[in-house]
């Protein structure tokens, strides 16, 4: 993952701002577990940690997302009428922890998405991929006008 990103950084061409996801498809745990928990403190803190700035790369369709709770590398392929299908890997500080796939649609500067996050509990503190959760995800972002 580190090697890939380093390669992209040196590949030439711009790395630019694409959007900021107020609701990020990865890791998808905020909506699935926290939003309805009644724990207002955790709801707020965990919401902030999943807000994700997303960056374009020199490779068309390939983006890098960088929230506190997940860093992702996602490729989106346009389908029809503004609809795209994307998939990629999600990490915890560059340690691969899961995958994400979603359909997305840009309506002007607003991007909405829906899909699936498959997430393990793996982290640098516990590099074990024994436990997995599959979660429906919803994404809501604001970015470059399309």
């Amino acid at each position: 993952m580190i090697a890939l990103l380093t390669t992209l950084a040196f590949a030439g061409g711009p790395i630019g701002f694409d959007r900021i996801d107020l609701l990020a498809e990865d890791p998808g745990t905020w909506l699935a577990y926290d939003a309805g928990s009644g724990n207002t403190t955790a709801i707020g803190v965990r919401f902030i940690t999943q807000v994700k700035p997303v960056w374009t790369t020199p490779v068309d369709g390939l983006t890098v997302g960088t929230s506190l709770s997940s860093q992702s590398l996602v490729y989106e392929h346009p389908l029809v009428g503004g609809l795209s299908l994307g998939g990629g890997v999600q990490t915890r500080l560059m340690l691969p922890a899961g995958a994400v796939a979603s359909f997305s649609y840009w309506a002007g500067p607003v991007r909405v998405a829906g899909g699936l996050s498959v997430l393990s509990s793996a982290s640098w503190a516990n590099p074990s991929w024994a436990s997995w959760h599959a979660l429906p995800t919803v994404g809501l972002g604001v970015g470059r006008r399309r």
Binding site: A42, V45, R46, T49, L68, S69, R92, L93, L95, A97, S121, A122, S123, W124, A125, N126
Partner: peptide
């Protein structure tokens, strides 16, 4: 703790 767990630097179970 919240940030440490979110970043994967702290592990309650371990």
């Amino acid at each position: 703790t919240e940030l440490g767990v979110g970043l994967g630097l702290l592990d309650m179970i371990g």
